[in-house]
Amino acid sequence: MTFTDKLTRAVQSSGSVLCAGLDPDPDRIPKPLRDQIPDEGRLIFEFCRRVIEAVKPHVCAFKPNLAFFEALGAPGWNALEQVIDSIPSNRVVIADAKRGDIGNTAGKYREAFFDRLGADAITLNPLMGMDTIQPFTHYPDKAVFVLTLTSNEGAADFFKQRIEGGSSLSQYIAGELSRYQVQSAAHLGMVLGATQTTNLQPLLKAHPNAHLLIPGVGTQGGSIPDLEKVLENHKGVPIINSSRSILYAGRDNEDWIRYVTDQAVQLKESLHTISSRYAKKAS
């Protein structure tokens, strides 16, 4: 099964393009669970496991953010492996690693995230050059989501800068990804911030078949109606991520998981117009 096959089936079976980001910060995990499980490695696993179980009917993908696991050292990595094992096989797993290196180093990242962890996709930083992506391109069941225009204000420092010929660096990256896709077995997608909708059209035009990982909805304030408009004719499938607004919706309430579930349902419903468009394409 190709990555595109798995993604489109996940969208169809969930009726959703929503992705739940897994950013388990021990200090923000609901107090009732912290009180039960003092060990941080076990705590972040159990927190993520319960979130996965609660929201899996409402999402097409899960995106573990590697920093939150790596910060705990070996217990965090062990928790990450357990978390990924807990994700249903009919949902897409995106390792949010944002790595970017060349040669043997990139190959080792590929071994870690594709071979060892079994992630379906990874996020990569392309600023060292397109050869940083090459080791990840040989696998038709995998995808790479390349940082193309991120949701943070600092995107203006580099991604929005004009280069030779007048296009932005983001537009150049999008065009290169489209060109590289011809010879890549893996799908080459783009990370595009939901807070950047006024700047997305040239990027979608440059890489019209790209699947998209779209952070910035929820806590960062990205507009879903604006996304509906800009994605209206895009051929690739958007995966619209929300992390903190889902994970910590319950704060320190005893029944925190109910709030998590409710927030995922609300976001799924708010994305209905976009999701239904791509669920139909999947069928």
Score class of each variant (00 low, 15 high):
residue 37 I to Q: 09
residue 134 Q to M: 06
residue 265 V to E: 12
residue 115 D to R: 14
residue 38 P to D: 07
residue 238 P to T: 01
residue 149 L to S: 02
residue 150 T to Y: 00
residue 58 H to S: 06
residue 231 L to T: 00
residue 250 G to E: 11
residue 83 V to N: 12
residue 42 R to K: 14
residue 216 G to K: 01
residue 225 P to V: 00
residue 122 I to F: 12
residue 155 A to N: 04
residue 268 K to V: 08
residue 248 Y to K: 10
residue 278 Y to H: 07
residue 167 S to Y: 05
residue 195 T to S: 04
residue 242 S to R: 01
residue 203 L to T: 09
residue 43 L to M: 10
residue 246 I to M: 06
residue 115 D to P: 00
residue 88 P to T: 09
residue 206 A to I: 07
residue 237 V to L: 05
residue 145 F to R: 08
residue 92 V to E: 11
residue 42 R to W: 09
residue 86 S to K: 09
residue 135 P to A: 04
residue 145 F to L: 13
residue 47 F to G: 07
residue 209 N to P: 03
residue 214 I to Q: 04
residue 128 M to P: 14
residue 119 A to H: 12
residue 249 A to E: 10
residue 199 N to Q: 14
residue 41 G to E: 08
residue 55 V to Q: 05
residue 245 S to L: 03
residue 241 N to P: 03
residue 163 I to A: 11
residue 9 R to F: 15
residue 64 P to E: 03
residue 210 A to D: 06
residue 122 I to H: 11
residue 246 I to C: 06
residue 263 Q to T: 13
residue 5 D to G: 02
residue 60 C to Q: 01
residue 210 A to E: 08
residue 100 G to Y: 10
residue 27 D to Y: 10
residue 202 P to H: 03
residue 70 E to C: 03
residue 190 M to V: 03
residue 230 V to E: 01
residue 23 D to L: 04
residue 130 M to V: 09
residue 148 T to V: 06
residue 82 Q to W: 15
residue 70 E to T: 04
residue 237 V to K: 02
residue 212 L to A: 07
residue 274 I to H: 08
residue 41 G to L: 11
residue 130 M to E: 07
residue 236 G to P: 10
residue 150 T to G: 07
residue 37 I to T: 09
residue 149 L to I: 03
residue 10 A to Y: 10
residue 213 L to T: 03
residue 200 L to C: 02
residue 139 Y to E: 14
residue 257 I to R: 03
residue 117 L to M: 15
residue 150 T to C: 05
residue 9 R to D: 14
residue 75 P to E: 08
residue 225 P to A: 00
residue 64 P to Q: 06
residue 266 Q to G: 01
residue 181 Q to G: 07
residue 120 D to L: 09
residue 117 L to G: 13
residue 32 P to Q: 10
residue 211 H to L: 03
residue 37 I to K: 06
residue 122 I to D: 12
residue 279 A to D: 02
residue 185 A to S: 09
residue 103 G to L: 06
residue 118 G to D: 12
residue 242 S to N: 07
residue 131 D to H: 05
residue 9 R to V: 15
residue 165 G to F: 11
residue 244 R to P: 14
residue 114 F to H: 01
residue 272 H to P: 00
residue 213 L to H: 00
residue 263 Q to L: 02
residue 17 V to N: 08
residue 204 L to H: 05
residue 42 R to S: 13
residue 48 C to Y: 05
residue 78 N to R: 14
residue 136 F to L: 11
residue 119 A to F: 12
residue 258 R to K: 11
residue 29 I to T: 09
residue 64 P to V: 05
residue 264 A to P: 15
residue 157 D to E: 13
residue 170 S to I: 04
residue 259 Y to K: 00
residue 20 A to T: 14
residue 67 A to Q: 10
residue 127 L to F: 15
residue 83 V to F: 15
